[in-house]
Amino acid sequence: MTILDARKTRPSEGGPSFSLANRLTRLAWIVTWLLLARWTPKKLNGWRCFLARRFGAKVAPGAMIYGSVRIWLPSNLTIGTGSSMGPGVNCYSMGAIHIGRDTIVSQGAHLCAGTHDFRDPHFQIQSRPIHIGDRVWIAAEAFVAPGCVIPDGVVLGARGCAVGRLRPWTIYGGNPARPLGERVLRAE
């Protein structure tokens, strides 16, 4: 993906932030998703995953992507086996977003892999990858900030705001998210 130099293109004055190829790819994706996937019932998950793969997403078998999910650029998304992106998830994949195995991204959550350099007088756009490990739960309406690393086993509580690197197998909540306790799984 090509992020254009804000000093040259002046996005604050209506200039583009991304290359023409990037914008056309995203337009084709948006039209495809709206016409062929957004309205589909839950049972057509395989079809939605197929479409995401056609646009470059790395979707493992057994992953679930609901029709109301918004994916900015599928080629920046990797989602592991048994993981799901629930209703209304906003996957702002300006940079790479990696979701491990058996991870749940609940309804209304926002994964944001893009930001601006607020120190730059031209407010340059930047992409920062997000890495979410295995057996993670991103609860309803939680926000995962650009560059965040969420290791295996983490729970980010509803409306929590994760920034930076979290500790594995820890429960987090609040804004900014703070550790609330250790996550221990019951024996089967």
Rank of each mutant, 00 (worst) to 15 (best):
F143P: 03
R101V: 05
S93I: 03
Y66Q: 12
M64I: 11
D5E: 04
R135E: 03
L185N: 06
T103I: 07
P87F: 08
R119M: 09
P176G: 08
L77S: 03
S75N: 06
R186N: 14
T40W: 03
V144H: 01
G164H: 11
H122Q: 12
N90L: 15
V154D: 00
T78I: 00
I138E: 03
Q124P: 06
N45K: 00
H98Y: 01
M94K: 04
G147V: 10
D5C: 03
C91W: 11
F123E: 09
R101Y: 02
R70T: 15
S75I: 09
F143H: 13
T32Y: 09
E182T: 14
G67D: 03
F123Y: 15
R159E: 12
V163F: 08
A28C: 14
V144A: 01
V105G: 01
E141P: 02
F123H: 13
R178Q: 15
P146K: 08
I138N: 03
V144W: 01
A145K: 09
Q107I: 08
C49E: 03
G157Q: 07
A139E: 13
F123Q: 10
A177Q: 07
D117L: 07
V154Y: 00
V184W: 07
L51T: 06
G133K: 03
V105M: 01
F123C: 06
V149K: 06
M94W: 09
K58Y: 04
L111R: 00
W33R: 08
T170I: 12
N175M: 13
R119Y: 11
L20G: 00
H110M: 12
T25R: 14
W39A: 09
I104W: 11
S68Q: 06
L73W: 11
A140N: 09
A57W: 01
I79A: 01
P121E: 14
M1C: 06
R186V: 11
G80M: 02
C49K: 06
L20C: 04
T103F: 02
I79H: 01
V184S: 12
F18L: 15
P11V: 06
W33Y: 10
W33L: 10
R10V: 07
H110N: 11
M1E: 11
I132R: 00
A158F: 02
H122M: 13
G181Q: 13
I65M: 05
E188R: 07
